[in-house]
Design a binder for these strands. Structure first.
Lengths: 244, 244
DNA sequence: CGCCATATTGAATCGATTCAAGAAACGTGG
DNA sequence: CCACGTTTCTTGAATCGATTCAATATGGCG
């Protein structure tokens, strides 16, 4: 559910994929370390809808929200990008979304034109970009399942769980993390109002599943319960997985 | 909203993209016309979740639903694929979705392994695959906005509008089309129940926006109104697009 | 310290769902 | 070709989960 995150999808990916990635890694990583670094303040836009899609970005530190806005102001966040994630993978000449930092952020900027040229000559690089795009698609599909099918409790539980799992992958504490975004951001990601997000967090707290020392700080008290709630163990006797 | 459809996204794409596509078109099209044709009955699966992702498919005739099923049976349709659309664009070794024909369908089958090899040597082909994947991502994002932000009326109106526009692109009547899928399918795409889909269609009919000669046959009576409803002109005085 | 953003909580409402009953459409076999 | 059974669709009534509106509370920051 953390979306956009190539890492978050790695969970479900297969070993050979990583192996292929390694060959390309060298050249691509070189390219990135040489790429200019850009600093963005919280709330500043990295790019906006309609801007020329001149660069591919990689988040170094911080976090960025990707979103579109409907003509009446409703906003759908497509995902949050965290360190290591790539932004701007499309093939369009202009961005069709807004990318806004939700905290001070640093990104590496690669020229889209030269990257495209390089990819035409280097199949390993091309494959790497293809994989990154496929990962973004997988993350978007995850979120689609969430907004299309899940209850508020499942959405919020799943959202929190994604932080726990990301921490786990990164060797950090899977039972304590910070929410860098506002309740409004969470709501606009999950298709809920800010009030519902707040109420649902309160409910998880009163169920002793999480603690909220501060409103942007989460401590997981019962990871199993959180996982069950994300899967829809709201109240009903859990339907046997594949039983008839 | 018709999702997955490379065509449906072409609307929003830019001229140079098509130009680039043309060069690759020749080789790719050759490859496809030589590829074996497979016939699938209605309700038959082209592939299922967990199957080896051995092939890339292109729909020749018919229609296919792409979906995932949650452990408790809820189903999210990610999109419908129509003639010309590509299926199986991922990089994973196994499919992470089900592809089920919703009417008798014919598909061309390309070996994923050989295609991958060819793409490594032919940047134009690689770009074509990349574009197709980007189109699928764009379509999925559209659907995410729909399920995340829109009301039942907006969802159904937008869904119908996609058929109208597809017909328009194909030189067919934009005011008459057939719905190849069931109400259940529509509901599982849009994140609504079958009853809500039915009621909403009835509402559009009683508002004289559409006619339903048969339940799988739609005639648009007021395209403007349908477009307005898809954009959220439910009842409120439509907010000026970009006004402050 | 005090202010403005953000977050929480409550009460009333509303849109969509659920449960339930028919109606229509479809396919199949007589 | 019609009758039948089955599936799909429609419609109604009651319910429920999430939203809306409104009133505090909290907290980050100048």
């Amino acid at each position: 559910m953390s979306t956009i995150s190539a890492q978050s999808v790695a969970d479900r990916a297969f070993a050979p994929r990583a192996a292929v990635g390694l060959r390309a890694e060298a050249g691509f990583e070189d390219r990135l370390t040489q790429a200019p670094l850009r600093r963005i303040e919280a709330k500043e836009l990295l790019f906006a809808e309609g801007d020329a899609a001149s660069h591919l970005y990689r988040i170094e530190t911080g976090a960025i929200a990707l979103y579109t806005v409907l003509n009446d102001g409703r906003r759908q966040i497509m995902g949050f990008a965290y360190p290591g994630d790539l932004l701007g993978l499309g093939i369009k000449r202009e961005h069709d979304m807004n990318a806004q930092a939700i905290k001070p952020t640093r990104v590496r900027c690669l020229s889209a034109a030269s990257l495209r040229q390089a990819a035409a000559k280097d199949p390993a690089l091309a494959l790497k970009l293809y994989e990154a795009l496929a990962a973004e698609l997988a993350a978007t599909r995850d979120l689609l399942i969430t907004t299309g099918q899940r209850s508020a409790l499942e959405r919020v539980a799943g959202f929190l769980l994604a932080f726990s799992r990301r921490n786990d992958r990164n060797g950090l504490d899977p039972e304590a993390f910070e929410l860098p975004m506002t309740r409004t951001d969470i709501g606009d990601l999950l298709g809920l109002t800010i009030e519902t997000v707040s109420r649902t967090l309160t409910k998880l707290r009163s169920l002793r599943v999480i603690e909220l020392p501060r409103c942007h700080e989460v401590r997981v008290r019962n990871l199993d319960a959180l996982e069950r709630m994300a899967e829809g163990a709201g109240q009903e006797a859990s339907h046997a997985s594949q039983a008839i």
